Simulated assay, not measured.
Amino acid sequence: MNKEKNQTLFGGSRSWKAEDWTASDDRVRGGKSQSFLECHNSTGRFHGNLDIQTLGGAGFASQRTTGEDRSWDLSAYAGIVLDIAEADDKRYTFILKDELLPRNPDTGREQATISWEYDFKPCFGESSLEKGGLVFVPWSGLKPTYRGKEKEHADPINLKTIKRMSIMMRSFFGDQEGPFSLTLRSISAATSSPVEPGRLEQGAATSAASNTNRWTWYRQSFTVALSPWRICGLALLATALFCVHRSSSRAA
């Protein structure tokens, strides 16, 4: 990964600032979840409590960037890198928006637009998209949703005018709840994935491909070997039916 061409958006060389973020929790829908972003110079800690009882199994707590006039041009990059210092074992969601509509004049609430979401579980292992606390969010991995449901036939995300970024904790249909904590060092736009396949990972990929090819060969061989048995079985079945028919004819 060419670090000179990456752009730090939050954290890193730019200190985390509380005024850059605001809570967007399910309290707007009558829920009781609550989130906070505790900012220090070197880290931003996203934490709080996810309540799913009030809304019958649903619930979300999130922090989003402030300001409706913000705009990032990320078209020169391949995705977002989340540099995670500490995390629990829960799943999170990173969200981008390329459009913000004026607030509803009757209710004062923000009107819904498409959200581009990427679910992840922080991993400090050796996976292809996550390594040593780094999570890579490729543009191709973003899923368009509208009002919490996947949006079919959505136009591609406009990377030239990203208006908002969010980090969310959600129930995933009742799978998780309670306290959560995710501490980030930085959020950056990256020209490539920070995780390049090492020897071990390449070996694992080769081994997996080899196993797949081996299984394909076994399956094909088994199918070929089975064909004569299938023919014999059909012949035996036909003989048995003929004998039954002949016995019935004699009895009549």
Rank of each mutant, 00 (worst) to 15 (best):
Q111L: 15
A154N: 11
D119S: 12
A112H: 04
S127A: 11
L142I: 13
E117M: 15
H153C: 10
L184N: 00
P105W: 03
R185W: 05
Y146D: 04
D119N: 15
T161W: 04
N104H: 01
F180E: 06
L129A: 09
S115R: 06
L129R: 08
G174M: 01
N158V: 08
P156E: 06
P122Q: 09
K163T: 14
S186A: 05
G141Q: 09
T183V: 07
A112L: 08
E152Q: 13
I157G: 02
R185F: 06
Q111W: 10
G148P: 03
S127Q: 03
P156W: 13
I162T: 11
P122N: 05
T145G: 12
T161I: 09
P105T: 14
S140L: 12
K131V: 11
S171A: 14
C123R: 03
Q111V: 06
K151D: 09
M168Q: 13
F124W: 04
F124G: 02
T107Q: 02
S127D: 12
L142V: 11
K143A: 08
Q176Y: 03
I162E: 00
P138G: 07
I187W: 03
W116L: 02
G148W: 08
A154S: 14
A112I: 10
E117L: 09
I114E: 03
I167K: 04
R109L: 07
M168W: 02
L159R: 01
K160H: 14
D175M: 11
K143L: 14
A189T: 00
C123E: 04
M168I: 14
K160I: 06
I162F: 02
S166M: 15
E110A: 04
P144R: 05
R185I: 07
R147P: 08
K163R: 15
F136E: 02
A112W: 03
F136C: 09
G132M: 08
L129V: 11
P122V: 00
K131Q: 15
M168L: 14
Q111M: 15
E150Y: 10
K151N: 01
S140H: 13
G125A: 00
S188K: 01
S128R: 09
I157A: 02
L129M: 14
M169T: 05
A154L: 10
I187A: 00
Y118L: 07
T107F: 01
S188W: 01
S188C: 09
G132L: 10
R170A: 02
E177W: 09
I162S: 09
R147Y: 10
K131S: 06
L134K: 15
S166N: 06
E150A: 12
L142G: 11
P122S: 07
L134R: 06
E130Y: 05
R185V: 03
G178Q: 00
E126S: 13
G133M: 11
T183E: 01
R164A: 04
T107S: 15
F136V: 08
S171Q: 11
P179K: 08
D155S: 14
T113P: 06
G148H: 11
G174Q: 07
L159W: 03
S166F: 10
K121A: 13
I167T: 04
